[in-house]
């Protein structure tokens, strides 16, 4: 369920960035395609109470250190109880990335798996969470 996230790695310094970049930010060399797991640790997060045009308040933004090394910027539907260092899973909804507490998502998956509805339901939940944050359906490509 947790997606692999497209990334790129520098052949010189091994810096991994997501989404992929053409050149390493620190070396004038082409980066090689890579993929990193959609799980990681919260480096920091914030909530904007007057977000920029096109976003709904409150807007949660997190910086997540993915397994595999890349740091990743994403949204979240909720930050209550969230701490720096918390384990989160990354989910994509309409090409927009969201973090969710790994524990809660895992519990949801187990529940729906037992009930006989696998991925669809979890995606539906993620989508409804996302709609609370996001105004349009493809807002990220404004």
């Amino acid at each position: 369920m947790i997606q692999a996230i497209a990334a790129s790695r520098c052949p010189t310094c091994a810096l991994t960035v997501a989404p992929p970049a053409h050149f390493c930010p620190r070396h004038p060399v082409e980066m090689a395609p890579a993929a990193v797991a959609g799980v990681g640790e919260i480096v920091s997060f914030t909530t904007l109470h007057s977000p920029p045009e096109g976003f709904r308040a409150p807007l949660h933004i997190a910086l997540v250190e993915l397994e595999g090394g890349a740091r990743f910027v994403c949204h979240g539907a909720e930050t209550r109880g969230l701490r720096v260092g918390a384990r989160v899973a990354i989910e994509a909804v309409d090409d927009v990335y969201y973090f969710a507490h790994l524990g809660a998502l895992d519990r949801a998956r187990l529940f729906w798996r037992r009930a006989g509805h696998a991925g669809d339901r979890v995606n539906a939940i993620a989508r409804s969470l996302a709609q609370r944050v996001w105004k349009g359906s493809s807002g990220a490509e404004r």
């Binding site: 997060f45 904007l48 933004i61």
Partner: peptide, 14 residues
Amino acid sequence: YGATMPALAGLVTR
């Protein structure tokens, strides 16, 4: 993702 200067400064501060 809605990052503004205050948003990035908020990440730093947290």
